[in-house]
Amino acid sequence: MRTTAKAGALLLATALALGFSSTAAHAIGDKNNQNPPGPSGGADNNMLNAGVGKTNIKVSQVSGGKGGSSGKGLGSVDPNWKPPACWYEPAATSEQVKAATDQLKKTPNENLVPVTPSLSWGEQLMVDTFEKGKSPGDGIKSYKNFNLGKDGKFWRGVVNPDMEGDPAAYECEEILFWQDAGIIPKIANAPTPKVLASYAYDKIKVPDTKVELKPEGKSTVNLPTWVWLDKGTFEDVKVRAELPGTGLWAETTAKPVSLHLEPGTADATTFPASAECKVNDDGSIGTPYTKGSSKEDPPCGISYLRATGGDPYQLKASITWEIAWKGSGGTGGDLPDGTFDGTQDIDVQEIQSINR
């Protein structure tokens, strides 16, 4: 079973030649799908509203992440790492495909049915392929009477919305195909626990990175500014991803391991010199400032060498998170470390002295 880009274009051209509009599509799929941008729609007769290519993966944050940011997610430290661009998953029951085809028979010139993330078919192709068992060619499998009475579902490709436009997002173009219940298809881009773990990577919400500083508000030239994070502020974050109807699941865990400081100016000295403050055994980072420590070198901190001249320095603090996962079937492994940063204003004043 295969569908090349050339074959897909040919099939779409065939559908258009037969008089079917490409501006509307009857969507088919599970009820927890949602409508994405682009052609979509719905119908009666067990035709459920569903987004074309929208995933059914369920993601939940199991633990950690208090005060998690609703903005950008973790950024991978590996510039070559990418989440999965597309995969296949259950899309519709036999009854839903039949209902979609029956609706086409009522309005053949108005609607199409999405059979891949980028290709939709009209009445004749749907009837021939899924009802009459007549394959349109190019190795595409056909079915008699929509496989009614059999235990399983029709599967379709899904595109990761974060990867739209990536060439790899167009590698899941197999025409809507049948898979017996309880069996994962043995094809390229089939879902796996690692696919779910990688998908969950981008869904991890970690606490905003705002460090404690002493002195607060304004630092002094050549006097160290202490930087720390209290224990418990940055605990492990665990996210679970499940694909209903497949038995596949994965839990992706992010563990904070270090804090990296960027002073916002070259005129500064960092402590330690690497500017990398490791997480302590109790989960804290650095050491809180105590009275009388202003002239000591902090285990984690900055000493500014020049005063700010109006605009404050932008102190950037980045937390590095180690990412590991475990999943169904005893699977598991590591994913690239992730980073999440925050920026704080730092005003630096000259040392005040009195001349007598």
Rank of each mutant, 00 (worst) to 15 (best):
Pro108Gly: 07
Gln179Tyr: 04
Phe130Ile: 13
Gly139Ile: 11
Thr107Asn: 12
Arg156Pro: 08
Thr129Asp: 06
Asp102Pro: 13
Ala100Trp: 03
Val158Cys: 08
Thr107Trp: 12
Trp155Gln: 10
Asp102Ser: 13
Ala92His: 02
Ala99Arg: 15
Gly152Gln: 03
Thr101Arg: 04
Pro114Gln: 05
Pro117Gly: 03
Tyr88Pro: 05
Leu112Ser: 06
Leu104Cys: 00
Glu174Thr: 15
Leu119Arg: 06
Asn111Pro: 06
Ala92Asn: 01
Leu112Glu: 01
Ser118Val: 09
Lys150Asp: 13
Glu89Val: 04
Leu176Asn: 10
Asn109Thr: 11
Gln103Phe: 05
Glu89Pro: 10
Ser94Glu: 03
Pro167Met: 00
Thr107Leu: 11
Asp166Phe: 08
Lys105Gly: 15
Leu112Pro: 01
Asn160Gly: 06
Ala169Pro: 01
Gln124Gly: 14
Trp155Ser: 10
Glu89Gln: 11
Ser142Val: 10
Lys132Cys: 12
Asp138Pro: 15
Thr93Glu: 00
Gly137Met: 02
Glu131Gln: 09
Asp138Val: 10
Met163Gln: 08
Met126Asp: 02
Trp155Ile: 13
Ser118Ala: 01
Cys172Asn: 09
Ala91Gly: 15
Leu148Met: 03
Gly157Gln: 05
Gln179Arg: 05
Ile140Lys: 06
Asp138Gln: 14
Gly152Trp: 01
Val97His: 06
Leu104Asp: 00
Gly122Glu: 01
Pro161His: 06
Val97Met: 05
Gly133Val: 01
Pro167Ile: 00
Gly133Ala: 05
Phe130Arg: 13
Asp162Tyr: 03
Lys153Asn: 06
Lys105His: 10
Val159Tyr: 00
Gly139Arg: 05
Ala91Asn: 07
Trp178Gln: 03
Thr129Cys: 05
Gly152His: 02
Lys153Leu: 09
Thr129Gln: 11
Met163Trp: 01
Arg156Thr: 09
Gln96Ser: 12
Val113Met: 02
Lys106Ala: 14
Glu164Phe: 03
Asp166Trp: 06
Pro136Tyr: 04
Gln103Ala: 15
Ile140Gln: 07
Asn160Cys: 02
Glu131Phe: 15
Glu174Met: 14
Asp180Leu: 02
Pro161Ser: 15
Lys98Tyr: 09
Leu176Val: 08
Gly149Asp: 12
Glu123Tyr: 04
Ala91Met: 09
Lys105Ile: 07
Thr129Ser: 05
Ala168Asn: 07
Tyr143Asn: 15
Tyr88Gln: 01
Lys153Pro: 05
Trp178Ser: 02
Gly137Pro: 03
Leu125Glu: 07
Arg156Val: 07
Ile140His: 14
Leu104Arg: 00
Tyr88Ile: 10
Tyr143Leu: 11
Pro114Asn: 05
Glu164Val: 11
Lys153Asp: 12
Val115Trp: 00
Asn109His: 08
Phe130Ser: 14
Asp151His: 08
Gly152Leu: 03
Cys172Pro: 14
Trp155Asn: 11
Glu89Thr: 08
